[in-house]
Design a protein around this nucleic acid. Sequence first.
RNA 1: GCUCCUAUAGUGUAACAGGUUAACACGUCACACUUUCAAUGUGAAGACUAUCGGUUCGAGUCCGUUUAGGAGUACCA
Length: 458
Amino acid sequence: MIRTRFAPSPTGFLHIGGARTALFCWAHSRKNNGKFILRIEDTDLERSTQASVDSIIDAMNWLNLDYDEGPFYQTKRMERYQEMIKQLLDSGHAYRCYCTKEELNQMREEQKAQGLKAKYDRRCLNKETHDNNKPYVIRFKNPTGGSVVWHDLVKGKIEISNQELDDLIIARSDGSPTYNFCVVVDDLDMKISHVIRGDDHINNTPRQINIFKAFNQEVPLYAHVPMILRDDGQKMSKRTDAVSVMQYKDMGILPEALLNYLARLCWGHGDNEIFTMQEFLEWFNLEHVSSSPARFDIKKLFWVNSNHIKMKDNHELAALVIEILNQKNIQVKESPKLVDVIQLVKSRSDNLNSLAAECSYFYNKFIPTAEEINQYLTNDALVILNKFTNELINLTSWDLQSIKDLIKNFCANENIKMPQLGMPIRLKICGTKNTPSFDEVIHLLGKTEVIARLTPNA
RNA sequence: GCUCCUAUAGUGUAACAGGUUAACACGUCACACUUUCAAUGUGAAGACUAUCGGUUCGAGUCCGUUUAGGAGUACCA
Protein backbone atom coordinates (compact mmCIF):
# COMPACT_ATOMS: atom_id res chain seq x y z
CA MET A 1 0.00 0.00 0.00
CA ILE A 2 1.41 3.34 -1.04
CA ARG A 3 1.01 5.97 1.63
CA THR A 4 2.37 9.48 1.22
CA ARG A 5 2.13 12.49 3.41
CA PHE A 6 2.40 16.23 3.08
CA ALA A 7 3.74 17.71 6.29
CA PRO A 8 3.88 21.50 6.34
CA SER A 9 4.74 23.45 9.43
CA PRO A 10 2.11 26.11 10.07
CA THR A 11 4.35 29.13 10.28
CA GLY A 12 2.76 30.91 7.32
CA PHE A 13 0.62 30.34 4.25
CA LEU A 14 1.06 27.53 1.75
CA HIS A 15 3.79 28.61 -0.62
CA ILE A 16 4.21 27.37 -4.13
CA GLY A 17 7.14 25.13 -3.32
CA GLY A 18 4.97 23.45 -0.73
CA ALA A 19 2.12 23.22 -3.18
CA ARG A 20 4.37 21.48 -5.68
CA THR A 21 5.51 19.00 -3.04
CA ALA A 22 1.90 18.42 -2.02
CA LEU A 23 0.99 17.89 -5.66
CA PHE A 24 3.64 15.22 -6.12
CA CYS A 25 2.69 13.47 -2.86
CA TRP A 26 -0.94 13.58 -3.86
CA ALA A 27 -0.25 12.38 -7.40
CA HIS A 28 1.95 9.53 -6.32
CA SER A 29 -0.66 8.13 -3.96
CA ARG A 30 -3.63 8.75 -6.26
CA LYS A 31 -1.88 7.14 -9.18
CA ASN A 32 -1.13 4.02 -7.19
CA ASN A 33 -4.44 3.73 -5.36
CA GLY A 34 -2.69 4.72 -2.17
CA LYS A 35 -3.52 7.11 0.61
CA PHE A 36 -2.52 10.72 0.96
CA ILE A 37 -2.13 12.07 4.47
CA LEU A 38 -1.97 15.63 5.75
CA ARG A 39 0.10 16.21 8.82
CA ILE A 40 0.68 19.51 10.54
CA GLU A 41 4.15 19.78 12.02
CA ASP A 42 3.50 22.27 14.75
CA THR A 43 6.07 21.35 17.36
CA ASP A 44 7.51 24.83 17.13
CA LEU A 45 5.00 26.46 19.44
CA GLU A 46 6.56 29.88 19.10
CA ARG A 47 5.96 30.17 15.40
CA SER A 48 2.97 27.92 14.69
CA THR A 49 -0.45 29.51 14.42
CA GLN A 50 -3.98 28.31 13.84
CA ALA A 51 -4.38 30.97 11.17
CA SER A 52 -1.56 29.34 9.23
CA VAL A 53 -3.17 25.93 9.56
CA ASP A 54 -6.42 27.33 8.23
CA SER A 55 -4.80 29.09 5.33
CA ILE A 56 -2.85 25.98 4.35
CA ILE A 57 -5.99 23.89 4.37
CA ASP A 58 -7.86 26.56 2.41
CA ALA A 59 -5.14 26.52 -0.21
CA MET A 60 -5.18 22.73 -0.42
CA ASN A 61 -8.92 22.85 -0.93
CA TRP A 62 -8.65 25.49 -3.59
CA LEU A 63 -6.11 23.36 -5.41
CA ASN A 64 -8.32 20.30 -5.05
CA LEU A 65 -5.56 18.31 -3.44
CA ASP A 66 -7.81 16.15 -1.29
CA TYR A 67 -6.35 14.05 1.50
CA ASP A 68 -7.60 10.76 2.87
CA GLU A 69 -6.36 11.07 6.44
CA GLY A 70 -5.66 13.96 8.72
CA PRO A 71 -4.95 16.65 9.36
CA PHE A 72 -2.92 15.17 12.17
CA TYR A 73 -1.26 17.54 14.59
CA GLN A 74 2.05 16.78 16.20
CA THR A 75 1.13 18.78 19.27
CA LYS A 76 -1.63 16.24 19.91
CA ARG A 77 0.76 13.34 19.87
CA MET A 78 3.10 14.35 22.69
CA GLU A 79 2.40 11.32 24.82
CA ARG A 80 3.32 9.05 21.98
CA TYR A 81 6.62 10.83 21.46
CA GLN A 82 7.44 10.55 25.15
CA GLU A 83 6.73 6.87 25.01
CA MET A 84 9.07 6.43 22.07
CA ILE A 85 11.79 8.52 23.68
CA LYS A 86 11.62 6.27 26.69
CA GLN A 87 11.96 3.28 24.40
CA LEU A 88 15.18 4.64 22.95
CA LEU A 89 16.47 5.49 26.39
CA ASP A 90 15.71 1.97 27.62
CA SER A 91 17.30 0.31 24.62
CA GLY A 92 20.45 2.39 25.01
CA HIS A 93 19.93 4.36 21.80
CA ALA A 94 19.60 7.63 23.64
CA TYR A 95 21.13 9.32 26.63
CA ARG A 96 20.86 12.36 28.85
CA CYS A 97 23.05 15.31 28.19
CA TYR A 98 23.58 18.01 30.82
CA CYS A 99 25.62 20.41 28.74
CA THR A 100 24.52 24.01 28.85
CA LYS A 101 24.20 26.11 25.72
CA GLU A 102 27.24 28.12 26.75
CA GLU A 103 29.23 24.98 27.18
CA LEU A 104 28.18 23.73 23.75
CA ASN A 105 28.99 27.02 22.08
CA GLN A 106 32.41 27.02 23.62
CA MET A 107 32.99 23.46 22.44
CA ARG A 108 32.01 24.36 18.90
CA GLU A 109 34.24 27.38 18.84
CA GLU A 110 37.19 25.36 19.99
CA GLN A 111 36.52 22.76 17.34
CA LYS A 112 36.27 25.40 14.65
CA ALA A 113 39.45 27.03 15.85
CA GLN A 114 41.21 23.74 15.30
CA GLY A 115 39.71 23.50 11.80
CA LEU A 116 37.42 20.68 12.81
CA LYS A 117 33.80 20.20 12.02
CA ALA A 118 31.58 21.36 14.86
CA LYS A 119 30.13 18.24 16.34
CA TYR A 120 28.91 17.16 19.76
CA ASP A 121 31.81 15.35 21.42
CA ARG A 122 29.65 13.02 23.53
CA ARG A 123 31.05 14.25 26.80
CA CYS A 124 27.81 13.21 28.54
CA LEU A 125 27.51 9.82 26.91
CA ASN A 126 28.90 7.76 29.74
CA LYS A 127 27.85 9.84 32.70
CA GLU A 128 27.06 7.45 35.46
CA THR A 129 25.49 9.73 38.01
CA HIS A 130 22.31 11.60 37.22
CA ASP A 131 21.51 14.77 39.03
CA ASN A 132 17.77 15.18 38.67
CA ASN A 133 17.91 18.78 39.75
CA LYS A 134 19.99 19.77 36.77
CA PRO A 135 18.26 20.34 33.46
CA TYR A 136 19.15 17.94 30.67
CA VAL A 137 18.27 17.17 27.07
CA ILE A 138 18.05 13.75 25.50
CA ARG A 139 20.34 12.92 22.63
CA PHE A 140 20.06 10.18 20.08
CA LYS A 141 23.11 7.94 20.08
CA ASN A 142 24.06 7.95 16.44
CA PRO A 143 26.14 5.07 15.08
CA THR A 144 29.79 6.05 14.74
CA GLY A 145 30.96 3.71 12.02
CA GLY A 146 29.85 2.99 8.50
CA SER A 147 27.55 5.15 6.49
CA VAL A 148 23.90 5.66 5.72
CA VAL A 149 22.89 4.83 2.16
CA TRP A 150 19.56 5.20 0.48
CA HIS A 151 18.38 5.17 -3.10
CA ASP A 152 16.53 8.38 -3.53
CA LEU A 153 13.73 8.06 -6.06
CA VAL A 154 14.66 11.42 -7.52
CA LYS A 155 18.35 11.90 -6.81
CA GLY A 156 19.63 8.35 -7.03
CA LYS A 157 22.04 6.82 -4.57
CA ILE A 158 23.04 9.04 -1.68
CA GLU A 159 25.62 8.00 0.88
CA ILE A 160 26.53 9.93 3.98
CA SER A 161 29.11 8.78 6.47
CA ASN A 162 28.04 8.46 10.07
CA GLN A 163 31.18 10.42 10.91
CA GLU A 164 29.37 13.48 9.61
CA LEU A 165 26.44 13.02 11.92
CA ASP A 166 26.43 13.83 15.59
CA ASP A 167 24.12 12.93 18.41
CA LEU A 168 21.14 15.10 17.75
CA ILE A 169 18.87 16.28 20.49
CA ILE A 170 15.53 14.47 20.43
CA ALA A 171 14.07 16.04 23.56
CA ARG A 172 14.66 19.58 24.75
CA SER A 173 15.34 20.41 28.38
CA ASP A 174 11.62 21.07 28.86
CA GLY A 175 10.99 17.54 27.67
CA SER A 176 9.44 18.48 24.33
CA PRO A 177 10.47 16.35 21.35
CA THR A 178 12.22 17.85 18.34
CA TYR A 179 11.48 17.76 14.66
CA ASN A 180 13.71 14.98 13.36
CA PHE A 181 12.45 12.65 16.03
CA CYS A 182 8.76 13.44 15.64
CA VAL A 183 8.97 12.95 11.91
CA VAL A 184 10.26 9.43 12.34
CA VAL A 185 7.65 8.48 14.93
CA ASP A 186 4.90 9.95 12.76
CA ASP A 187 6.08 8.32 9.57
CA LEU A 188 6.29 5.08 11.47
CA ASP A 189 2.86 5.31 13.07
CA MET A 190 1.24 6.54 9.89
CA LYS A 191 2.87 3.74 7.92
CA ILE A 192 4.28 6.12 5.35
CA SER A 193 5.74 4.23 2.41
CA HIS A 194 7.10 7.19 0.45
CA VAL A 195 8.50 10.34 1.95
CA ILE A 196 8.30 12.99 -0.76
CA ARG A 197 9.64 16.37 0.33
CA GLY A 198 11.88 19.25 -0.65
CA ASP A 199 15.55 18.51 -1.15
CA ASP A 200 16.41 20.86 1.68
CA HIS A 201 15.64 17.83 3.82
CA ILE A 202 18.34 15.62 2.33
CA ASN A 203 20.62 16.41 5.21
CA ASN A 204 18.00 15.31 7.72
CA THR A 205 17.40 12.00 6.03
CA PRO A 206 20.39 10.02 7.31
CA ARG A 207 19.63 11.10 10.88
CA GLN A 208 16.04 9.98 10.48
CA ILE A 209 17.07 6.70 8.89
CA ASN A 210 19.29 5.99 11.86
CA ILE A 211 16.39 6.56 14.21
CA PHE A 212 14.21 4.21 12.18
CA LYS A 213 16.93 1.60 12.52
CA ALA A 214 17.25 2.18 16.26
CA PHE A 215 13.58 1.28 16.47
CA ASN A 216 14.34 -1.75 14.38
CA GLN A 217 11.87 -0.61 11.76
CA GLU A 218 11.87 -0.60 8.00
CA VAL A 219 12.74 2.78 6.54
CA PRO A 220 10.42 4.33 3.97
CA LEU A 221 11.46 5.21 0.44
CA TYR A 222 12.57 8.77 -0.10
CA ALA A 223 12.08 11.17 -2.96
CA HIS A 224 13.66 14.60 -2.59
CA VAL A 225 12.29 17.09 -5.06
CA PRO A 226 14.23 20.21 -6.02
CA MET A 227 13.44 23.75 -5.00
CA ILE A 228 11.64 26.38 -6.98
CA LEU A 229 13.67 29.54 -7.40
CA ARG A 230 12.89 33.03 -8.52
CA ASP A 231 13.32 33.88 -12.19
CA ASP A 232 16.75 35.33 -11.43
CA GLY A 233 17.84 32.13 -9.73
CA GLN A 234 17.62 33.51 -6.23
CA LYS A 235 15.63 31.97 -3.48
CA MET A 236 12.04 33.13 -3.30
CA SER A 237 11.33 35.52 -0.52
CA LYS A 238 8.06 36.25 1.20
CA ARG A 239 8.79 39.91 1.17
CA THR A 240 9.40 40.48 -2.52
CA ASP A 241 7.79 37.56 -4.34
CA ALA A 242 4.35 36.11 -4.76
CA VAL A 243 5.01 32.89 -2.92
CA SER A 244 1.59 32.25 -1.44
CA VAL A 245 -0.65 29.98 -3.44
CA MET A 246 -3.61 32.21 -2.72
CA GLN A 247 -1.90 35.19 -4.28
CA TYR A 248 -2.16 33.34 -7.56
CA LYS A 249 -5.86 32.87 -6.98
CA ASP A 250 -6.10 36.62 -6.58
CA MET A 251 -4.21 37.08 -9.82
CA GLY A 252 -6.95 35.15 -11.57
CA ILE A 253 -5.03 31.92 -12.02
CA LEU A 254 -7.10 28.75 -12.24
CA PRO A 255 -6.05 26.07 -9.73
CA GLU A 256 -5.69 23.45 -12.45
CA ALA A 257 -3.45 25.86 -14.36
CA LEU A 258 -1.22 26.49 -11.34
CA LEU A 259 -0.93 22.77 -10.78
CA ASN A 260 -0.22 22.18 -14.46
CA TYR A 261 2.53 24.78 -14.41
CA LEU A 262 3.99 23.57 -11.11
CA ALA A 263 4.00 19.99 -12.38
CA ARG A 264 5.82 21.07 -15.51
CA LEU A 265 8.46 22.66 -13.36
CA CYS A 266 10.85 19.84 -12.50
CA TRP A 267 8.93 17.22 -14.41
CA GLY A 268 8.13 16.45 -18.01
CA HIS A 269 6.28 13.99 -20.16
CA GLY A 270 7.69 14.37 -23.64
CA ASP A 271 6.49 17.57 -25.24
CA ASN A 272 3.25 17.84 -23.33
CA GLU A 273 2.77 21.31 -21.93
CA ILE A 274 -0.93 21.59 -21.26
CA PHE A 275 -2.69 18.73 -19.57
CA THR A 276 -5.59 17.93 -17.29
CA MET A 277 -5.10 16.51 -13.82
CA GLN A 278 -6.34 13.20 -15.15
CA GLU A 279 -3.63 13.11 -17.79
CA PHE A 280 -1.09 14.19 -15.22
CA LEU A 281 -2.01 11.26 -13.00
CA GLU A 282 -1.62 8.90 -15.93
CA TRP A 283 1.78 10.21 -16.81
CA PHE A 284 3.29 11.14 -13.50
CA ASN A 285 6.24 9.18 -12.28
CA LEU A 286 8.62 10.13 -9.50
CA GLU A 287 11.56 8.82 -11.46
CA HIS A 288 10.94 11.44 -14.12
CA VAL A 289 11.17 14.29 -11.66
CA SER A 290 14.28 16.26 -12.48
CA SER A 291 16.87 16.72 -9.80
CA SER A 292 17.89 20.29 -10.45
CA PRO A 293 16.15 23.39 -9.15
CA ALA A 294 13.83 25.27 -11.50
CA ARG A 295 13.11 28.93 -11.92
CA PHE A 296 9.63 30.29 -11.70
CA ASP A 297 8.49 31.98 -14.92
CA ILE A 298 5.30 33.91 -14.39
CA LYS A 299 4.82 34.61 -18.09
CA LYS A 300 4.62 30.95 -18.80
CA LEU A 301 2.21 30.49 -15.91
CA PHE A 302 -0.12 33.00 -17.55
CA TRP A 303 0.23 31.24 -20.86
CA VAL A 304 -0.66 27.93 -19.24
CA ASN A 305 -3.55 29.68 -17.56
CA SER A 306 -4.86 31.09 -20.84
CA ASN A 307 -4.94 27.58 -22.23
CA HIS A 308 -6.92 26.31 -19.29
CA ILE A 309 -9.35 29.19 -19.58
CA LYS A 310 -9.97 28.24 -23.20
CA MET A 311 -10.51 24.62 -22.18
CA LYS A 312 -12.80 25.35 -19.28
CA ASP A 313 -16.56 25.07 -19.50
CA ASN A 314 -18.28 28.44 -19.95
CA HIS A 315 -20.72 27.86 -17.12
CA GLU A 316 -17.90 27.13 -14.71
CA LEU A 317 -16.07 30.23 -15.87
CA ALA A 318 -19.26 32.24 -15.48
CA ALA A 319 -19.53 31.27 -11.83
CA LEU A 320 -16.00 32.51 -11.21
CA VAL A 321 -16.47 35.68 -13.23
CA ILE A 322 -19.69 36.61 -11.43
CA GLU A 323 -17.82 36.60 -8.14
CA ILE A 324 -15.25 39.04 -9.46
CA LEU A 325 -17.85 41.28 -11.07
CA ASN A 326 -19.87 41.37 -7.88
CA GLN A 327 -16.84 42.55 -6.00
CA LYS A 328 -16.72 45.45 -8.42
CA ASN A 329 -20.40 46.10 -7.94
CA ILE A 330 -21.24 45.17 -11.49
CA GLN A 331 -24.53 43.36 -11.79
CA VAL A 332 -24.73 40.68 -14.44
CA LYS A 333 -28.00 41.00 -16.32
CA GLU A 334 -30.24 38.45 -17.98
CA SER A 335 -29.21 39.61 -21.39
CA PRO A 336 -26.74 39.12 -22.84
CA LYS A 337 -26.17 35.80 -21.15
CA LEU A 338 -22.84 35.70 -19.34
CA VAL A 339 -21.93 32.35 -20.87
CA ASP A 340 -22.37 33.85 -24.35
CA VAL A 341 -20.21 36.82 -23.44
CA ILE A 342 -17.55 34.50 -22.06
CA GLN A 343 -17.61 32.42 -25.21
CA LEU A 344 -16.91 35.57 -27.20
CA VAL A 345 -14.12 36.95 -25.03
CA LYS A 346 -12.46 33.96 -23.38
CA SER A 347 -9.67 33.59 -25.91
CA ARG A 348 -8.57 37.14 -25.14
CA SER A 349 -7.71 36.60 -21.48
CA ASP A 350 -4.91 34.88 -19.69
CA ASN A 351 -6.45 35.33 -16.27
CA LEU A 352 -9.84 35.52 -14.60
CA ASN A 353 -9.54 39.19 -13.71
CA SER A 354 -9.02 40.31 -17.26
CA LEU A 355 -11.72 37.88 -18.35
CA ALA A 356 -14.09 39.57 -15.94
CA ALA A 357 -12.99 42.95 -17.24
CA GLU A 358 -13.75 41.82 -20.78
CA CYS A 359 -17.22 40.83 -19.63
CA SER A 360 -17.85 43.92 -17.59
CA TYR A 361 -18.58 46.34 -20.43
CA PHE A 362 -21.48 44.18 -21.50
CA TYR A 363 -23.21 45.04 -18.24
CA ASN A 364 -21.89 48.43 -17.41
CA LYS A 365 -21.15 51.42 -19.60
CA PHE A 366 -17.68 52.77 -19.00
CA ILE A 367 -16.40 56.20 -19.82
CA PRO A 368 -13.39 56.50 -22.09
CA THR A 369 -10.41 58.59 -21.06
CA ALA A 370 -10.11 62.17 -22.19
CA GLU A 371 -7.26 61.18 -24.42
CA GLU A 372 -9.33 58.54 -26.16
CA ILE A 373 -12.20 60.95 -26.58
CA ASN A 374 -9.94 63.55 -28.15
CA GLN A 375 -8.47 61.05 -30.51
CA TYR A 376 -11.49 59.10 -31.63
CA LEU A 377 -14.69 60.88 -30.72
CA THR A 378 -14.11 63.91 -32.89
CA ASN A 379 -16.96 65.95 -34.35
CA ASP A 380 -16.63 64.16 -37.65
CA ALA A 381 -16.74 60.81 -35.91
CA LEU A 382 -19.84 61.81 -33.99
CA VAL A 383 -21.62 62.77 -37.19
CA ILE A 384 -20.83 59.38 -38.64
CA LEU A 385 -21.90 57.68 -35.43
CA ASN A 386 -25.22 59.47 -35.57
CA LYS A 387 -25.93 58.29 -39.05
CA PHE A 388 -24.90 54.79 -38.16
CA THR A 389 -27.12 54.78 -35.10
CA ASN A 390 -30.09 55.67 -37.25
CA GLU A 391 -29.33 52.80 -39.57
CA LEU A 392 -29.13 50.46 -36.63
CA ILE A 393 -32.48 51.70 -35.39
CA ASN A 394 -33.96 50.87 -38.74
CA LEU A 395 -32.39 47.45 -38.89
CA THR A 396 -35.20 44.94 -38.64
CA SER A 397 -33.45 41.66 -38.06
CA TRP A 398 -30.78 41.64 -35.34
CA ASP A 399 -28.67 38.75 -36.48
CA LEU A 400 -24.92 38.77 -36.88
CA GLN A 401 -24.93 38.57 -40.65
CA SER A 402 -27.31 41.50 -41.03
CA ILE A 403 -25.16 43.59 -38.73
CA LYS A 404 -22.05 42.67 -40.65
CA ASP A 405 -23.73 43.59 -43.93
CA LEU A 406 -24.98 46.83 -42.51
CA ILE A 407 -21.50 47.83 -41.36
CA LYS A 408 -19.95 46.89 -44.65
CA ASN A 409 -22.49 48.81 -46.72
CA PHE A 410 -22.39 51.76 -44.40
CA CYS A 411 -18.63 52.11 -44.70
CA ALA A 412 -18.84 51.78 -48.44
CA ASN A 413 -21.54 54.41 -48.72
CA GLU A 414 -19.78 56.82 -46.41
CA ASN A 415 -16.47 56.08 -48.08
CA ILE A 416 -14.72 55.40 -44.79
CA LYS A 417 -12.50 52.62 -43.54
CA MET A 418 -13.59 50.16 -40.92
CA PRO A 419 -11.53 51.62 -38.07
CA GLN A 420 -13.09 55.03 -38.61
CA LEU A 421 -16.39 53.53 -37.60
CA GLY A 422 -15.15 50.78 -35.32
CA MET A 423 -13.04 52.71 -32.89
CA PRO A 424 -15.65 55.38 -32.03
CA ILE A 425 -18.25 52.66 -31.66
CA ARG A 426 -16.05 50.68 -29.29
CA LEU A 427 -15.44 53.71 -27.14
CA LYS A 428 -19.06 54.74 -27.20
CA ILE A 429 -20.60 51.40 -26.31
CA CYS A 430 -17.79 49.68 -24.41
CA GLY A 431 -15.74 52.57 -23.12
CA THR A 432 -12.54 50.94 -24.28
CA LYS A 433 -10.60 50.47 -27.51
CA ASN A 434 -9.80 46.86 -26.88
CA THR A 435 -12.76 44.67 -27.59
CA PRO A 436 -13.60 41.74 -29.84
CA SER A 437 -15.03 42.42 -33.31
CA PHE A 438 -17.48 45.22 -32.83
CA ASP A 439 -20.10 43.56 -35.00
CA GLU A 440 -20.14 40.66 -32.56
CA VAL A 441 -20.27 42.99 -29.62
CA ILE A 442 -23.20 44.88 -31.11
CA HIS A 443 -24.97 41.65 -31.88
CA LEU A 444 -24.50 40.18 -28.43
CA LEU A 445 -25.30 43.35 -26.54
CA GLY A 446 -28.72 43.59 -28.17
CA LYS A 447 -30.50 46.34 -30.03
CA THR A 448 -32.04 48.19 -27.12
CA GLU A 449 -28.84 48.45 -25.17
CA VAL A 450 -26.70 49.36 -28.18
CA ILE A 451 -29.06 52.13 -29.26
CA ALA A 452 -29.26 53.40 -25.71
CA ARG A 453 -25.50 53.59 -25.42
CA LEU A 454 -25.11 55.27 -28.79
CA THR A 455 -27.74 57.88 -28.11
CA PRO A 456 -26.15 61.16 -26.92
CA ASN A 457 -27.77 61.60 -23.54
CA ALA A 458 -27.90 58.01 -22.54
C1' G B 1 35.98 25.06 6.82
C1' C B 2 33.46 20.23 6.43
C1' U B 3 29.35 17.06 4.33
C1' C B 4 25.55 16.63 0.80
C1' C B 5 22.62 18.27 -3.65
C1' U B 6 22.73 20.61 -8.54
C1' A B 7 24.72 22.30 -13.68
C1' U B 8 21.22 21.03 -21.71
C1' A B 9 19.42 28.02 -25.80
C1' G B 10 17.09 33.94 -21.55
C1' U B 11 13.38 30.23 -19.00
C1' G B 12 11.14 25.10 -18.39
C1' U B 13 11.47 20.37 -20.01
C1' A B 14 13.00 16.31 -24.23
C1' A B 15 16.65 13.33 -26.31
C1' C B 16 13.29 6.83 -22.44
C1' A B 17 19.13 1.05 -21.82
C1' G B 18 25.83 6.07 -24.90
C1' G B 19 24.89 6.08 -31.90
C1' U B 20 23.57 10.86 -37.70
C1' U B 21 22.83 18.42 -38.43
C1' A B 22 20.57 18.38 -29.56
C1' A B 23 14.01 18.61 -29.94
C1' C B 24 9.40 20.92 -27.99
C1' A B 25 7.24 24.89 -25.33
C1' C B 26 7.39 29.86 -22.90
C1' G B 27 9.80 34.40 -23.93
C1' U B 28 12.02 37.63 -27.98
C1' C B 29 11.82 39.38 -33.17
C1' A B 30 9.52 39.36 -38.13
C1' C B 31 5.51 38.35 -41.31
C1' A B 32 0.31 36.90 -42.21
C1' C B 33 -4.82 37.31 -40.72
C1' U B 34 -7.89 41.16 -38.39
C1' U B 35 -11.19 46.68 -37.51
C1' U B 36 -8.24 47.93 -32.34
C1' C B 37 -5.96 44.92 -28.43
C1' A B 38 -5.63 40.04 -28.09
C1' A B 39 -6.16 35.13 -30.03
C1' U B 40 -4.51 32.25 -34.19
C1' G B 41 -1.01 30.85 -38.18
C1' U B 42 3.98 30.92 -40.48
C1' G B 43 8.99 31.85 -39.93
C1' A B 44 13.72 33.65 -37.64
C1' A B 45 17.39 34.38 -34.05
C1' G B 46 19.12 31.73 -29.84
C1' A B 47 22.87 25.95 -26.71
C1' C B 48 29.18 23.28 -29.60
C1' U B 49 24.96 20.24 -23.58
C1' A B 50 29.32 25.02 -17.00
C1' U B 51 35.22 23.58 -16.91
C1' C B 52 39.21 20.40 -17.90
C1' G B 53 40.40 15.41 -18.48
C1' G B 54 39.31 9.99 -18.85
C1' U B 55 36.65 5.34 -20.56
C1' U B 56 34.70 4.11 -25.66
C1' C B 57 34.80 2.84 -32.61
C1' G B 58 31.38 6.60 -30.64
C1' A B 59 29.23 10.68 -24.66
C1' G B 60 24.67 15.73 -23.18
C1' U B 61 24.07 10.55 -21.60
C1' C B 62 29.37 6.67 -17.78
C1' C B 63 33.89 8.15 -14.39
C1' G B 64 37.06 11.85 -12.22
C1' U B 65 38.55 17.31 -11.83
C1' U B 66 37.63 22.45 -11.41
C1' U B 67 34.23 26.35 -11.10
C1' A B 68 29.57 28.33 -9.87
C1' G B 69 24.84 28.06 -7.28
C1' G B 70 22.08 25.78 -3.21
C1' A B 71 21.20 22.96 1.50
C1' G B 72 22.92 21.37 6.24
C1' U B 73 26.48 21.77 10.09
C1' A B 74 20.45 24.72 16.15
C1' C B 75 17.50 22.77 22.90
C1' C B 76 14.08 25.78 14.07
C1' A B 77 11.12 23.00 11.14
